[in-house]
C-alpha cells in the first residue's frame, strides 16, 4: 500500500472482500431463518455491506458522491424498517406468529 496514491489505510481488495462476505452472510440469513424480524435484520445487514463498499470506493477515488448515496440508502433503510415492522406487527396480531411461512397464504 502506498499512502500517496490512495486514502485508504488498507487495500481496496480488503474492503471488497469484506463487503462480499458480509453481503453473503446477510443473504444466508434470509435463506436460513424463518423469523420475519430476523429476516428484516438480515436485509439491513446486506444494505450495510453495500454501504461499506460504497464508502470504500468513495474514499478510494476521493469523491463524496458515493457517500451521499450511502446517506440515501440509510434513509431508505429506515423507511423500509418502519414499514416492514408495522406489517410484521399486523401479521403478528392476526396470527400470533412471526413465521414467514404465514405469507404462503398470499398466493392462494
Amino acid at each position: 500500500m502506498n499512502p500517496t496514491t490512495t486514502n485508504l489505510s488498507a487495500s481496496i481488495e480488503f474492503y471488497i472482500l469484506l463487503s462480499c462476505v458480509l453481503f453473503t452472510i446477510g443473504a444466508l440469513g434470509v435463506l436460513v431463518r424463518r423469523n420475519m424480524i430476523v429476516l428484516l435484520m438480515c436485509i439491513e445487514l446486506m444494505l450495510n455491506a453495500v454501504n461499506l463498499l460504497l464508502v470504500a470506493f468513495s474514499t478510494y477515488y476521493g469523491q463524496g458522491d458515493a457517500q451521499i448515496f450511502v446517506f440515501f440508502i440509510i434513509v431508505v433503510a429506515a423507511a423500509e424498517a418502519t414499514v416492514g415492522l408495522s406489517i410484521l406487527i399486523m401479521a403478528y396480531r392476526n396470527n400470533k406468529s412471526t413465521d414467514v411461512g404465514l405469507f404462503k397464504t398470499l398466493k392462494d
Binding site: G62, Q63, G64, I68
Partner: peptide, 19 residues
C-alpha cells in the same frame, strides 16, 4: 498510482456541499 482525489471527501463540509 492514480487516484488523488480529495482527502477530506468524507468530511461534513464536503458532504454538505454535495448534498
Amino acid at each position: 498510482g492514480q487516484v488523488a482525489g480529495n482527502l477530506n471527501a468524507g468530511m461534513v463540509e464536503n458532504l454538505g456541499e454535495l448534498l
